[in-house]
Amino acid sequence: MHSWFILIGLALMLLAGFGGSLFGNAWGPLQQVISLAVGALLLVIGFIFLMISKFYVRPSANMAYVRTGFGGRRVVLDSGALVFPYLHTLVPVSLETMKLEVERKGPDALITRDNLRVDVKAEFYIKVQPEVDAILNAARSLGDKSVNAQSVSQLVFEKLVSALRSVAATKDLVEIHAQRDAFASGVQQLVRSDLEQNGLTLESVTISRLDQTSQELLSDNNIFDAQGKRKITEITQAALVERNRIEQEARREITLKNVQTQKEILELERQRAEAEAAQQAEIAKIQAERKREAETYRIEQERQIQEAQIQQDQAVRVAAVERDRLLLLK
């Protein structure tokens, strides 16, 4: 659009100078003045639009700029500014949260209070607050570099490593492992003030990986590694002794349990045998009683039969005697 304003303005200004030859007496001084004034106005408007379109810079919501050079230092935030080549320098400042990863392992691993090395991978979440002072401090810290995750990492990497080392040196390996959040909080508190001097705000610190450094990577010529190896040997040997004690104790408990179980089984079998013997004795007793009762009943029956037979025989004899007596009387 600015091109049209400029072209029309130039055309009107040319018309002011050569309109008389084109329109004759109809083109008088008044028309020349109006044509010249309108042409100049359109030309100025066109140049203004041209400057705005070419040199006006407006940051996005997640970005800010620091303009330096002619007119002094100025923070461009939520608005815009004219930036002219050779007169100004523009430093972009990202307002997004930046994730900076710091990993220390092997020979570079952290040294704990008990002289053990620990491999650590930490993530630092950092951002520049959308405030004028914070943006200026961030831009000053990085000079003319853009404020992004890569440049910020180069600036504060050693600070972050130093904070990790300082906090690790105050805690034992087991303590760091058991209290990761406390370790991360200690690092965050230690490094926060240093980052604020660079216009950076530390949002959080997370420990994504934490493990003892492999013993093969430790050097016998390093006093910390030598002490660490001795500590590892002491701990592992103590653990082996304790494990052996636990295993032997477990075997003893298993044997005792087996013996106790066998005793209980034998006692149950004895009780079962006694119960079976008592049951057999009771059955034999009942059978003998039933047999005795049956024999008594049989004897009684035979006695009664014999007595009946005797009575019958007596009756027969009495009847015979009585018959003989009657015969004699006749």
Rank of each mutant, 00 (worst) to 15 (best):
Q309F: 09
V93L: 04
I34S: 09
R251V: 11
R290Y: 08
T255H: 11
F84C: 09
Q271R: 10
A273H: 07
M98Q: 14
Q215Y: 14
V191K: 00
A315L: 05
V93M: 04
F55M: 06
W4Y: 03
M1I: 02
A277H: 05
G46K: 02
E247K: 08
K231H: 07
A308I: 05
G199A: 03
K291N: 12
D181M: 04
G72E: 11
N244K: 12
K263Q: 12
I265S: 12
V156K: 01
Q279N: 14
Q197E: 15
N148Q: 07
F183Q: 06
A16T: 02
Q301H: 08
L160V: 05
F70C: 04
S60Q: 13
N258W: 12
K229P: 09
I232E: 13
I232L: 15
S79M: 04
E158S: 09
R104G: 12
I235E: 15
L160N: 05
Q32N: 09
K127D: 13
S153D: 15
F49E: 14
I45A: 10
D114R: 02
L329D: 15
I310N: 05
V132I: 13
Q309A: 10
D133W: 00
L136S: 13
R245P: 02
P92E: 06
E216C: 07
L266A: 13
E249N: 13
E196L: 02
L217N: 09
E101H: 11
S185T: 07
K285I: 15
V120G: 03
M63A: 03
I254A: 15
S146L: 07
N221G: 10
E300Q: 15
S21A: 13
S219E: 11
R73P: 11
V102A: 05
G20E: 15
I223C: 05
L268C: 05
Q215W: 15
P85K: 04
D133L: 06
P85D: 08
E267A: 14
F55S: 08
K257D: 11
A109P: 07
A308F: 03
V156E: 04
E103L: 07
I135Q: 04
L202M: 03
D324A: 15
H2Q: 09
S219M: 05
Q311I: 00
T201I: 05
I283S: 13
D133T: 08
Q271W: 00
L110K: 07
F49K: 10
A288W: 10
D108T: 09
A109C: 10
E293I: 14
S21N: 15
L256Y: 10
A250Q: 14
H2I: 00
A61Q: 11
L95F: 02
R270G: 11
A315H: 01
V118G: 01
S219G: 02
S3K: 10
S193K: 07
D172A: 13
S162A: 12
A139I: 01
G143H: 06
G80N: 02
L14T: 12
K54P: 00
V33C: 04
E282M: 15
F157V: 02
S79I: 01
A11T: 02
V66D: 03
L210I: 11
L41P: 00
K291Q: 14
P92V: 01
